[in-house]
Design a binder for these strands. Structure first.
Lengths: 146, 146
DNA sequence: TCTTGTATGTCAGTGTGTTGACATCCAGAA
DNA sequence: TTCTGGATGTCAACACACTGACATACAAGA
């Protein structure tokens, strides 16, 4: 262009590479979860639900950064497959506390190992301390943008 | 759970934070480009086209990691607004070489500064050497997954 | 008590990206 | 020359996430 370097060969833009990394991870996770008939949002939902049982639809949506409507579809799919349970009537307010079924816990265990394997493959080039450094760097990026 | 730590409080999973960072960046870029009436894919397309004029639809799609169909919609939108030009008939084969119009170059300049401002804000917490380190780390992640 | 506000679940409508498919165009081998 | 393979542009159908909207249920204040 006219005034010096603009963005560079695009491979040098942090934002570009950040998107590429996220896309590659998403693709790899999709492939790893496909044999289990789980999508990434479904797996994320199960994982959160395992760590925080009894969360409502809206709370789950906030935890996974999607809308209530989207999470509602995810939950319905999981419920139809018997991986989670929601009471037909709300015990308090309108919130329906969601819980994992034994089948859901079993499915989550398989999915969790598959996902961890993908993460481990992604982190192969790094030492343990480098991994925490990368983690902190990414967190700093998020905070700087917020 | 049963056997030690599973995934941790989820904030410690690199994949989770990677997605959060990419989402935050995407949201910030969307907000920065909205006043210019440009979406992130449209901006990416203009940027690539500026560095490599004459690329065809399929080549652009590969460069931005979307399908030909999606890129076709993006190009049509940009073409209707007079930011790019495509010959009505292909000079060779079926590929239609795309070029930026003066209006497109002008719009891209404004968009590029806006996007660079977002990237700069994201990289505020880092020194120059830390930025290149982060870049290389992310590239290593992509390579490890490929 | 009644009212206002907030939060939740759910129903549309919309937009965007994808996969699947097809016709076209060129290059190279038989 | 003829034909096969690869690449391209484009159409259709589908999936998923979003915004907008509405009715419901509880909490806090007048």
């Amino acid at each position: 262009m006219s005034q010096g370097e603009q963005v560079g060969p695009l491979d040098e833009a942090v934002g570009y590479v950040l998107k590429r990394a996220a896309t590659a991870l998403r693709t790899a996770m999709d492939a790893a979860l496909r044999p289990l008939d789980l999508t990434v949002p479904q797996y994320s939902c199960l994982e959160v639900l395992s760590q925080q049982p009894g969360l409502s639809n809206a709370e789950l949506a906030r935890a996974v950064f999607v809308t209530r409507q989207s999470m509602n579809l995810v939950l319905r799919g999981l419920q139809d497959r018997g991986l989670i349970t929601r009471p037909a009537t709300a015990p308090h307010g309108r919130a329906l506390p969601t819980e994992l079924t034994p089948a859901g816990r079993h499915q989550l265990k398989a999915a969790s190992t598959a996902v961890r394997a993908v993460e481990a493959r992604m982190l192969t080039p790094f030492t343990k301390s480098q991994q925490t450094r990368l983690l902190n760097d990414l967190l700093a990026c998020v905070e700087a943008l917020d």
